[in-house]
Design a protein around this nucleic acid. Structure first.
Lengths: 201, 201
DNA sequence: AACACATTAGACCGGTCGTCTAGAAATGTC
DNA sequence: GACATTTCTAGACGACCGGTCTAATGTGTT
């Protein structure tokens, strides 16, 4: 009996469930994703699911938390990179997002954005959590834009938080349009407009 | 027997189904909306549904078509209103959209936008139809912006179609953010940024 | 070995889903 | 008014869902 690997698999069960859940829900949404499907993909038996999670909603909430935590580190990589100017950090973030989206054939998009659209009217508890996560992102963008204002990369006459909200919602909308057109053009247009017209002195 | 009203009800059965379907799907999405639910709301018996529609997907497609046709007239009301300047037509469109969204307690949002997000990766035939509808809107916006360029309301150095795409995706994103924050603030910010920064000479 | 505790097995439930077919009701034709 | 045709309805059907349950198994401690 491979004792060590068995133990390792067990320890990772919850994480496996969360990973598969996030991946499948990003593509298929919350309602269209079945627990059975996640169980089959991970090889975890059905009986175990409700040992780890109280309900599907609880599962969804933990997926959001997990994703938010991991993504926070991704944001660090971009926004703590002092080798680039604040605006160029944002630009790199956009361009890498574009590349990633293209690499997955203009599918899926953003887990948090998708769930926000789908779940805001369906589950108040998920809505609140989703709002917190996205507000956190907006505030990160706002910090970056404030920095850009300090360095005179962008005009100081607009509230950085409003600019960040506009940027975030515009990005999410562009991703949605890119999904439905199966092309990166809407994202390309977003990047062009933001950096050539919106973020100019 | 109230023959006339019976006949009328029958003639309207399909339209009733489509109306209720559009209303419920706007709020709950395609996957989370049950046919039974629509049937109960309209009083139409279950067996009738598949007489009028080949499948749920076909039903969804017809809802999209119906909505697109009706919405095209709504767009006419705004964009054929020559008593306003082109930019003010667009502004009125935004502000009325904001009011409508607020009136329904920051819920629902845009049927086509919601379905685009939800269905693009799930049904190719719906994706294509959704893309056509939204591209049509974008082109209407672009025509309005071209007119605005002619009248020197906005700078001519940007392609009106790109501007329109940016406007459309930004609007959809702002509605999504407003749904999740249960506030019109993201929409307000969008309107402010678009008309004070993006659409300025 | 005996114990408590963590985890898994998988049957089971009530419910809803989308689909289908038989036939009732309405309509048209002669 | 009888018959044929089309239009519409009734409700059963099987598949699958999220969620729950009890029994069994594995693990670590003493």
């Amino acid at each position: 009996m491979p004792k060590a690997s068995t133990i390792k698999a067990k320890e990772g069960t919850k994480a496996q469930l969360l990973e598969a859940g996030a991946r499948i829900m990003t593509e298929k949404g919350y309602n269209h994703t079945g627990i059975l499907e996640i169980l089959q993909e991970t090889g975890v038996p059905k009986g175990s699911f409700y040992y780890y999670f109280a309900s599907k909603e609880d599962f969804g909430l933990r997926i959001i938390d997990d994703f938010a935590e991991a993504y926070s580190q991704t944001l660090d990589e971009y926004f703590k990179d002092t080798s680039l100017s604040p605006l160029n950090r944002l630009r790199k973030y956009c361009e890498d997002g574009r590349k990633k989206f293209e690499a997955q054939e203009c599918r899926k998009g953003c887990l948090i954005g998708n769930l926000s659209q789908e779940m805001s009217d369906q589950s108040e508890i998920m809505r609140v959590r989703l709002e917190e996560v996205m507000n956190g992102w907006r505030d990160r963008f706002a910090d970056c834009l404030k920095e850009a204002q300090k360095q005179n990369e962008i005009p100081a006459r607009y509230d950085a938080k409003a600019l960040a909200e506009f940027f975030l919602s515009g990005w999410e909308g562009a991703v949605m349009r890119s999904k439905v057109t199966k092309s990166t053009k809407p994202i390309d247009t977003f990047i062009k407009m933001v950096f050539e017209k919106l973020f100019v002195p």
